[in-house]
Amino acid sequence: MAAVKSSGRAAVNRLAVVGVIIATLIFLAPIYWIASTAFKPRALATTVPPTVLFQPEITSFIKLFVKRVQMNKAVDPATYAAAPWWEQRIMDNGERVLRTGDNVQLSGYPSRFMNSLIIAITSTVLAVGMGTFTAYGFSRFRVKGEADLLFFILSTRMLPPIVVAIPMFLMYRAVGLTDTHIGLIILYIAFNLSFSVWLMKGFMDEIPKEYEEAALVDGYTRMQAFFKIVLPEAATGIAATAVFCFITAWNEYAFALIMTNRRAQTAPPFIPSQLGSGLPDWTVIAAGTFLFLLPVAIFTFALRGHLLRGVTFGAIRK
């Protein structure tokens, strides 16, 4: 009887594993597509049917990082021989690297990538930090009109952000915030703050107030109790909130496209702009996209332990 039951359960388990594998493959397919295209020779990038077996190369990544122009005549063999290996890869494609003096001119990608990092990290840190403090206040103190205030905070998410894009642009232009890092950072904090407050409030409510009270009677001030007791207890919530805020800020496209064009432009609006001139080089776009995916993947992977605990939060006996 028991054996029948357990073998039945094992069958269900095997089915579940198969299901998970299929789902994972479906979710990973686009990522595989991007990654494989990034390493393909340009000629194989757009073949029909798609090429599956090929000799991987990193030419597209070299192209991604340097500024280059189409050559109108074949390359001089002496110049080719003198060039470093990576420049030869570009010359193979009938292009040459632009230089100022002896320095290679970089493409727009590295600076856009840096902009993305600066803006996403700064806005995430601030949004999560402010959200944590606000949530703590709402969770622990009697706030007059608490329900109304929380609803007001939530209501900032009820409008599709793009609806306010034009007025925001006009305001930003008037105060000189267009194409600035600080401008996008403020914008992304505004997007994420309500989310951060609500998520963190849920986590804060789960932390028994006796922990702080114990610290208070043990001789700590409320501020010390917050940093020594509440923050470590809220780590799971902070990690989960940070991942979500980071992804939102990192992937944001519409406002970045409208508000920035050069100095503070982030990667999302930049990558497709490379489609524009001449024949699109899909391998370069794929390389740019592939690199763009990495920070979120690394960040999420680094915090995965906290995220898993975040999902099961409340089920743990305190």
């Binding site: 028994p208 922990y211 009270e213 610290a215 470590p232 207890e233 305190k318």
Partner: peptide, 9 residues
């Protein structure tokens, strides 16, 4: 405290 309030971390 009744529920101990030991710091879990």
């Amino acid at each position: 405290f009744q529920l101990y309030a030991l710091y879990p971390h």
